[in-house]
């Protein structure tokens, strides 16, 4: 099989050609660094994305607190995670980096706050 993709590991955006017979034998062409190869492998085997969203803040200077996953998350888990995030409600104070959900669905990925939320 062959798939063309653009490496998004960095802004350079190398245009990759990925060919494979089975999942243990993936060949990558067009990458300028090693990141390209691992990116392509992951895109074929288990594509992951960092998820960003906002959580309702009960009270606070801002109405919604921005959050992210500390690691890229398997794509298949993302919609359920988002629906879960939107049901949360947080009380300040929250500090940037604070873990809001730990080890989501056993993936080892945490949801963390991406800004401070002071008490009013």
């Amino acid at each position: 099989m062959e798939r063309k993709m653009v490496c998004i590991s960095c802004p350079l955006g190398c245009r990759l050609t990925v060919t494979w017979e089975d999942e243990n034998d993936i060949a990558v062409k067009g990458n300028k660094c090693a990141k390209g190869e691992s990116y392509a492998q992951e895109e074929i085997l288990a594509p992951k994305r960092v998820v960003t969203a906002t959580v309702r803040a009960a009270t606070g200077a801002v109405r919604r607190l921005p959050v992210k996953t500390n690691l890229p998350m398997l794509k298949g888990y993302i919609p359920a995670l988002l629906n879960r995030i939107y049901k949360l409600e947080l009380r300040p104070p929250i500090v940037r980096g604070q873990v809001l959900l730990k080890n989501i669905e056993g993936t080892g990925v945490d949801l963390v706050a991406t800004r401070n939320l002071k008490k009013v």
Partner: peptide, 18 residues
């Protein structure tokens, strides 16, 4: 935000469960 359900993009390629 939160009022609309986020749908599973079935068409999008999903990863293995490993």
């Amino acid at each position: 935000v939160g009022g609309l359900a986020v749908k599973d993009p079935a068409a999008a390629p999903t990863g293995t469960e490993e």
